[in-house]
Design a protein around this nucleic acid. Structure first.
Lengths: 108, 108
DNA sequence: TTATTATATTGCAATATTACGATAAAGATT
DNA sequence: AATCTTTATCGTAATATTGCAATATAATAA
């Protein structure tokens, strides 16, 4: 089929999957890393940094924004994109919890 | 096109994207959470826990295994699946680094 | 007003993913 | 051996994703 049965899973499972999915493409990981590197929100040079056409980059930015990983604000005729720390913290805390729980297990 | 241009990105970017992609489906997140909950590696009841057919679950398990998120060992005619802590630590450390770097930025 | 610049949207082709029935493979049980 | 149990693979249909050319939108500059 191809359609994911999201309604069979918990809200948290869907939330983690949605965020992880957004990071499930190297171009989007590269966008995040570029936003980190420039250390400022005057973005718009992202297109020049990536080996992808402008509409493709725009689409990836949209997906990162929908997942809550970045936020964008209009600055004149350009748009300023920034990393949304909160969502990364959701991920970090989730994985921390997994690691802690696994460590307590006494098998394997 | 649909084909991802992995060769244009760094090894780390591809690695993070591959792992994140594997977690980018609620069924696979649910599998991870079930492995945590049972606190043992006598798996095989995963199929009964999920609203998906056996071949579908098997496919999801394969993807989690390929991404290094779980490991499986043969136990008689059953297979014992476990969480592979190391890969989750890769993710946690990666996100921790992002959060630390963002915190140092003075914009937005 | 007419460019120019920056980003988004549309439309479409190529490819990937998801899901599952049918079937295969392999060890366990009778 | 014949059967059962467990998991994997194949084949295929439905849907989603990726990428980009063309075009649209919106603010700025000339």
């Amino acid at each position: 089929m191809g359609a994911t049965k999201t309604d069979h899973f918990t809200d948290q499972q869907n939330q983690i999957a949605t965020i992880a999915k957004a990071l499930g493409h190297p171009a989007r990981v590269a966008i995040i890393e570029h936003l980190l590197k420039v250390n400022t929100c005057i973005c718009g040079d992202i297109v020049n940094e990536l080996p992808l056409a402008q509409p493709t980059v725009s689409q990836h930015l949209k997906e990162l924004k929908n997942a809550g990983l970045i936020k964008g604000s209009i600055e004149g005729n350009a748009i300023c994109y920034c990393i949304d720390e909160k969502t990364f913290e959701v991920l970090k805390n989730y994985f921390s919890k997994i690691i802690t729980t696994v460590s307590k297990q006494n098998c394997c």
